[in-house]
Write a protein that binds this DNA or RNA. Structure first.
Lengths: 334, 334
DNA sequence: AAGACTATTGTTAACGTGTGCATAGATGTG
DNA sequence: CACATCTATGCACACGTTAACAATAGTCTT
């Protein structure tokens, strides 16, 4: 049996209502009464029953943090940074409930009663279904990492198209003209954005990219590895490869060294994400940094604001990406 | 306003009691009545209010997944695999609440009412305080990744001492005698276990490790990098370095190549954990694999069993580690 | 000093669900 | 046919908390 406000009330010789008010620091209660009740609560090691609170206050104290998938395709570093960012903001005001969207067989159980607010770290257009569901239920929602136009939904993301443009342009500025592309996972919005930025840079500088210089990828080490192996068999090899994330870049670099070649002397490589190990591989990887932790922090802050003020500040926040030049690209212009 | 069992009752012309029983598939209710009620519930898009259920059933439907820290020292891959493992087991029966133990200012709010069970992924002896608290409250608990003897607490971990022994012995078998150690983060149990395994191998083969061959580390890239830089300044350098995790090994390898030397020709390196990138760095890293995802799955399965059967199967499950030989160690015995 | 007002506390109902007990009807039994 | 038994349902209360309203005592005003 756990201790309730009624137990406290009995000991303090007051009604349980007074105890409730005292513990919630209501101005209605005399200061000395409050103090007396607080002391007793402390002694009894009282903890409020949050189920009861939730029932009457119509708040769950739960915040959902949903990823497109937990089981496939989400990179560990991304996942980690996102949770860290959100966690650092919510502190102990809410419980953080982590879920993979693809684990839901039905969105039925997602209601106003079970979540005070939801953060979706979205990697795929397929997430639109759950976004619509949540918006329809009127649950405060912020979508991170992917642009979204649903009305009433907050949106925080980085400008990945611009980042890819930067990286691809950098390759061109270093004198490369035979440039290949390893694409991201099919269906992930980021894959499309990064490819778009790449294409724009190519068109802008009037560089042709033959079909053989394009390979699909899955955002993992192995697919980057395979794609680069493919490029290395070509008669006229590319001199540089733009990889849509760092993990594929690492896999690609592995393939280069296995073939007895060197990065960047024989092949230049750029990645995307600036994961923690990018600076530590040899050669250090030139890549694009996007502020995931900042995105998730901003998202959480905005969500909390939205929950508490009820005001729908429906704006999209676009954070800039940054090219991090290291050692994996050779300059051909000298 | 959301729909409740009373709304359904009104439409079905029965009492809310009957609706409650019908939806919980009680044998007391006639089959056709059940069906009629189910249809109406479906039409109204009824979802039970879990706060109310929790209040009366005294179950929270929450499972806590606590890490020693979210903000410092936990590696992304470790974190990711642990969450995946647990998530794959619980499916939709419970909500998974992720927290960092160091975010708690007080354990006061951790009660039977707020968690049906808790999984602690423990990396430090300091976690004993929260373990004691949870055990005292009588909440079903499983501790992963670190040995624990508290009575009534389930425990699943890998035998890291043995893994480190394997790896260190392997270095010796390859003919190395000047072997250095980069230790794990101070206070983390794994750091102690791995060091112990290393020491045991050295003693077993009667190999002396001078003080200059031991450096503290923080489990991150940078500390591995610094430690190796230190070793490289020594007059009589080690020929091999045992790093207490892969990230430090990667940092160490970086330092070697920065010094114009090569792994494994000039310096052999072994890591620990077999993180995803271990196979893809150049040279591929020889390391020790421990089954984190399996540990977290086993842990979750046992916890659920414990919650539902109430039987305390207080056993410790020790999973074996495995040496993964790749290319980062040179054989001196030829 | 009577009425109005204020400060503090208590009474009671409500949130949505589950369950022990009562009840009514149906069925069986000798 | 009287009684026991069984089946299906309803009634009333409980879980722990908050909040609208009521009540009491004290203070102020004129």
């Amino acid at each position: 049996m756990s201790v309730t406000i009624k137990d406290i009330a009995k000991l303090a010789g007051v009604s349980h209502t007074t105890v409730s008010r005292a513990l919630n620091n209501s101005p209605l209660i005399q200061e000395e009464t409050k103090e007396r009740i607080r002391v007793i609560a402390e002694q009894l090691d009282y903890t409020p029953n949050y189920s009861a609170k939730s029932l009457v206050l119509d708040r769950s104290y739960n915040l959902g943090l949903f990823f497109t998938t937990l089981s496939k395709g989400t990179s560990a570093g991304f996942f980690y940074e996102a949770i860290r960012g959100v966690n650092s903001v919510i502190q102990d005001r809410y419980q953080l409930i982590v879920k993979g969207i693809d684990d839901y067989t039905s969105f039925h159980s997602i209601t106003r009663k079970s979540f005070d607010g939801i953060i979706i770290v979205s990697q795929s257009d397929d997430d639109q279904a759950i976004i619509d569901h949540i918006a329809a239920k009127g649950i405060p929602l912020v979508v991170l990492n992917r642009p979204v136009t649903t009305s009433g939904v907050l949106n925080v993301l980085s400008d990945e198209e611009q980042g890819a443009f930067l990286a691809a342009s950098y390759l061109i500025e270093q004198g490369h003209t035979r440039i290949a592309l390893i694409e991201g996972r099919q269906g992930f919005k980021s894959a499309q954005n990064r490819k778009d930025g790449f294409e724009r840079a190519m068109e802008h500088h009037r560089i042709q990219v033959p079909e053989a210089y394009r390979m699909p990828g899955l955002y993992d080490l192995e697919s980057g590895h395979q794609a680069m192996q493919q490029f290395l068999t070509l008669k006229e090899r590319p001199t540089a490869v733009f990889c849509c994330n760092d993990e594929m870049a690492l896999g690609a670099m592995k393939a280069v060294s296995e073939a007895g070649l060197q990065v960047p002397q024989d092949m230049s490589v750029v990645g995307f994400d600036d994961t923690v190990f990018a600076a530590y591989v040899t050669p250090a990887l030139t890549t694009v940094r996007r502020p995931i932790e900042q995105i998730s922090k901003e998202g959480a802050v905005r969500l909390l604001g939205n929950i508490e003020n009820k005001q729908h500040e429906t704006e999209q926040l676009l954070l800039k990406t940054e090219l991090i030049v290291r050692e994996s690209v050779r300059s051909l212009s000298l």
